[in-house]
Design a protein around this nucleic acid. Structure first.
Lengths: 346, 346
DNA sequence: CCGCTTTACTAAATCGGTTTAGCCACAACG
DNA sequence: CGTTGTGGCTAAACCGATTTAGTAAAGCGG
């Protein structure tokens, strides 16, 4: 009771394998009667071409891989990623491509890349010297990067991280804040170096702060999760001089900060202003609604997918200009007050 | 400059293809010196086995497919799905499997199933008579269902939808609500019949309402999104007698209801109680925090993945008992007040 | 009726691996 | 010395499709 192959259909219909293949992929090359007979027999037997055999023979698998920087459970805890997948999905579905999620295989993406039977890759947040990139072009699979550094061989789609970050910091400074803390995105698996995205955002924050002549901000690294954001708040609140404003590089982290601040008896934004980054949908419903930097995540994904598809067709593609980011002011930021309010547990 | 194949490595190292294959998959069968030479040459040439060829030959691709009921952009707008993927991912990563997302191909899952080169499928929310199931066992790919109806051939992992729904309704009734509205999940692609999940939850709500002797609830179908929830509220608010409590089958929809209610000048929970379903992470941070029915989504995914992996090994698996659901009471529900308050726009 | 083009189909090569069966040289054993 | 292993390697079959090159028959103009 094994699988029905093309040979089974061929012999059942009294024709060659070629004829069966033609019936599906090149029907014009068969006569009316034969075509119908073959198709009939195939249907009756429940024949389905073996995808791997097809992929081997046609040199295309009809799927594109998404190189994700960490385990699925880490990455999908951030709605940012869901939105990106939505965009990638839109691009793919236009061309009947499926999406393969490729997380690192015991810590290494290179191994995982080899395993994957795909026609192209979307990579996320890779530093330019990541060894995964070498493997990719050694194998010769077209790749489009997201949130990385564009290069001739590896086009990338990015957003204006620096500009967004600068606007966020300027907003806080403009409200009168001087003691700021920055919560930095963690570096990628096994790396020390921060991701290109984190570096650009940090530069943006710093520029605004320097321009305003405000004191050097406290910067600390925290994971992208509500829990990590809460821990970051705990650390900050132990400082001699608690910051009055927090610039978080991720909405999830910002939400964690707000939640921990709330538990500590602080009021956001009166006692602490918080601004996030990404503008995930949830940012709109939090209490208070989160001031954050919007980036067009879905569009970013869609664009990346389309670029990759072009590349897979052999067409050249150029990295587009960084997509616009905009500051969305909601209610988690205000003028600093109660500057020296001690933290009271309630 | 095409791909390096096993034959290239073989001739460069002066051995047979078999030897090269052994070097990677069966190193014991080669002598020390040969082994090292082959491995060395392979590395030098940057050899990587072709995944499709490997899959064809070994009859396994190392990936499992997730049969998703709608387009990626629809499905991933619901955090429920992200969480499920987290669970599936945990199960997969334990065995170095990757995850292929398989959305319907122009409306039909059957076509998409054939395309996919996978060793097993996880299906979501299929009705027992869905034609996709026929295709699946005709091809003979092991499948585990999620949120469906278990059968001998197609084991399923489910949660206690009815119990959770009943608890939700009882909660509202216990607070004194009598005029309830139910927001039902939409049926799957192209179907009229509601999904098994929706049917079970509806039954649970109805049972509680009937037991309490409360009047027949208003039931209306709405998509799983904040926007759809908001539209549902608009519809409800046009009724002669606005409901005092809303039972939504999805947190996203519930959030939409709350948000629209807020815009209409109603206070949740004083003017309208809302209870959701799923307990996605965002439910905790909404304003007010959402009362909802928690189901162990990540665990559900993890369990489904593990069951599938067992099945792929040829072991028999039984459908487990439905996973427990628990009512999580937060602040979106209270005793009904202001019963006849007109809706004022503000 | 001849030569030439179409039409309808097939045999065999190909994609790039894994695996089975077996060969050969050498050592151990009786 | 003959037999029997055994370690180390290879030739060839196989996985299941697509595709190239080609053949036989039919059609057709002259």
């Amino acid at each position: 009771m094994s699988r029905v192959t093309i040979a089974d259909v061929a012999s059942a219909a009294g024709v060659s394998k070629t004829a069966v293949s033609f019936a599906f992929n090149n029907p014009d090359r068969l006569g009316q009667t034969t075509l119908e007979r073959v198709l009939g027999v195939a249907h009756e037997l429940g024949y389905t071409p073996h995808p791997a055999a097809r992929a081997l023979s046609m040199r295309r698998s009809g799927t594109i891989g998404v190189l994700i920087p960490q385990g699925l459970s880490t990455v999908f805890a951030n709605p940012f990623f869901s939105e990106l997948i939505q965009g990638l999905g839109e691009g793919c579905e236009e061309h009947d491509l499926t999406l393969l999620l490729v997380p690192p295989l015991d810590g290494s993406l290179e191994g995982a890349i080899r395993q994957a039977s795909v026609d192209g890759f979307i990579s996320l947040g890779l530093t330019p010297d990541d060894r995964a990139l070498e493997v990719l072009d050694r194998i010769g699979i077209p790749t489009v990067q997201v949130d990385s550094v564009a290069s001739a061989e590896h086009p990338a789609v990015n957003v204006d991280d620096a500009g967004g970050a600068e606007a966020a910091a300027r907003h806080l400074l403009g409200l009168g804040h001087r003691r700021l803390a920055i919560i930095v995105l963690p570096p990628a698996r096994g790396q020390v170096q921060s991701t290109p995205t984190a570096a650009r955002r940090l530069a943006g924050y710093r520029k605004a702060i320097k321009d305003a002549g405000a004191p050097e901000p406290r910067a600390l690294v925290a994971g992208i999760s509500v829990a990590a954001g809460a821990r970051a708040f705990e650390t900050l609140s132990k400082d001699r001089q608690r910051p009055t404003g927090v610039l978080a590089m991720s909405d999830m982290t910002a939400i964690g900060v707000m939640s921990a601040a709330h538990s500590a008896g602080l009021h956001v934004p009166d006692d602490l202003s918080v601004v996030g980054f990404d503008d995930v949908p949830a940012a709109e419903w939090t209490n208070p609604p989160l001031t954050t930097v919007r980036q067009p995540i879905v569009e970013k994904g869609r664009l990346a997918a389309r670029m990759l598809i072009q590349r897979m067709r052999g067409e050249a593609v150029e990295s587009p200009a960084p997509l616009r980011t905009t500051l969305v002011i909601r209610n988690s930021t205000s003028e600093p007050t109660n500057l020296d309010l001690p933290i009271r547990r309630r």
